[in-house]
Amino acid sequence: MGTTNTRRGFRTWWVRTGRFGMSHVILALIALTTLTPFLWMVLASFKALTEVEQLNPFPSVWHPENYIKVFQQIPFARYYFNSVFIAGWVTILTCITSAMAAYAFSRVDWSGRDGFFKLYLATLMIPGVVTMIPNYTLMVKLHLMDSYLGLIVPASFSAFGTFLLRQFMMTIPPALDEAASIDGANSWRIFWDIILPMSRPGVVTLAIFTFLGNYGSFTWPLIMIKSQHLRTLPIGMLFFDTIYGRQTNLIMAASVMNIIPLVILFVISQKFLVKGIQLGAVKG
């Protein structure tokens, strides 16, 4: 009995170490594959143009001034501002509208609620390209073409956000708002003072998602923005690439600057994001 145990233990140990070792090797290889393009991008952004096409990984002379040149050639700071500004407003508005709708779908008990919710959810299936052209003509008619409002307002209503927050609010014990309503609080008070603070992780998750999605939003700004001073980062990058396409080193510098805020935001908010992705996938 004892010997078997020892042998078993040894075997388990061996298998564990061996297998884990293999796993680490495989994972490290995959991580390397993932990282290599990023490394190339960062290194290319410090190279002289003539060196970009050469195989040597490190620049023979480092050119940090490439980054300054980007700001000189295109109003990159303006693009940054526009992207953050627009994505910020969309995030704020989406969180407010979604939280209110989610409250109605989860904490208020009204006749026809669940049927209506299913119908509402089904709209998640509508592809963006179907609404793209009519929304474009709507914006033209409303004279919101080529304006901040035209970029912010249509993006600020999200069925996905409502769904995500509803999932969150469903988990809050009903006793809480019942107690409050006995104390005479009206629905708005319950929403604002109790439910909203309790769904903080959900709101933060939604905020991060919305911000990320709109920071990189491409199609809608592409057809909406006509003026240079309204260009967001993706649109600015596209024009930078078509007009100055041959300056690979500068394009790479711009790309690095484009993705750095995303990386930082991700590292800070990892926990929320991972939770949110998992929560969003649970069927309602």
Binding site: P37, W40, M41, L212, G216, F218, L233, P234, M237, L238, D241, I251, M252, A254, S255, N258, I259, L262, V263, F266
Partner: peptide, 10 residues
């Protein structure tokens, strides 16, 4: 997380 125009240009 970084997917978008910048990565496509890359």
């Amino acid at each position: 997380i970084t997917s978008g125009i910048a990565l496509m240009i890359l």
